[in-house]
């Protein structure tokens, strides 16, 4: 678990962030959001609402046009590339398009973030086996991900994001290709990670994921926050 991030500040702090794609497509507009360490937050909204852009801003794939994005107290715009790389080892991301290597098998794909962090090979093997078992994918261990179904690929992508037991896990529509049983398995894994201290931001338009949960959720519409509900009220500003 991440040692880079201090306890006394929000893990993710977005202040008046705007992202405009050329020529003038406004993806998110002047939004602010703070996510506390250990929180599980749902980011909801229709397709095109700006959820994916917001996640990309948090993991420094995109830079905001205006505003500040802080992760673990670091302003990402002022953070050097070496530190960003180190930061990414502590952030697990489930991409909407999975970003798997089709010629590598499921185990090799899941192991990748751990190899990048130079973990011990036995530790890597054991963690890969554990995640495959949780997601009921053990029998697909040695199969190239290019030959797996979309739902299976999604589960491999989720396992890869969870592999390093990251401090922050960002998931973009993590159950978009899954049946209800698989979606439940994924939610169980997310909750287990959350209990172990991982902060999660889950972008989803699948209402069944958060309908009966106590977790805070914020809704995006046309790049703006329109609604939020939470038993644990945290600063959420829409200016």
């Amino acid at each position: 678990m991440l040692k880079l991030f201090p306890d006394d500040r929000p893990l993710v702090d977005i202040v008046k962030a705007t992202k405009v794609y050329p020529p003038d497509i406004v993806a998110v507009q002047n939004i602010s959001l703070a996510v506390a360490k250990g929180e599980l937050l749902f980011l909801t909204g229709m397709s095109g609402a700006g959820k994916t852009t917001l996640l990309k801003l948090i993991c420094a794939i995109e830079q905001p046009t205006k505003g500040v994005i802080e992760v673990g107290g670091r302003d990402l715009a002022k953070t050097g590339s070496a530190e960003i790389q180190q930061l990414r080892q502590e952030i697990g991301v489930v991409y909407q398009d999975f970003k798997l290597l089709p010629k590598l098998n499921a185990a090799q794909n899941i192991a990748m973030p751990m190899e990048v962090a130079y973990r011990d090979q036995r530790e890597i093997n054991s963690r890969v086996d554990e995640l495959l078992a949780i997601l009921k994918m053990t029998h697909k261990r040695e199969i190239q991900t290019g030959k797996l179904s979309r739902g299976e690929q999604q589960r491999v992508a989720i396992a890869r994001a969870a592999a390093n037991s990251p401090a922050l896990l960002l998931a973009d529509e993590p159950t978009g290709n899954l049946d209800q049983d698989s979606a439940n398995l994924v939610m169980d894994l997310f909750e287990q990670l959350n209990r172990e201290g991982t902060t999660l931001i889950i972008a989803s338009h699948d209402e069944s994921l958060y309908r009966n949960s106590d977790y805070r959720r914020v809704q995006l519409e046309h790049g703006l926050f329109t609604n939020h509900s939470s038993p644990r009220q945290l600063p959420l500003i829409n200016q």
């Binding site: 993991c59 794939i61 590339s81 070496a82 790389q85 180190q86 930061l87 990414r88 080892q89 502590e90 952030i91 991301v93 991409y95 970003k99 798997l100 290597l101 990748m112 973030p113 990048v116 962090a117 130079y118 890869r160």
Partner: peptide, 12 residues
């Protein structure tokens, strides 16, 4: 690209 996204250092 994927290696960079999962935090691979330049050295790696």
């Amino acid at each position: 690209e994927i290696l960079r996204l999962v935090g691979a250092s330049n050295r790696y």
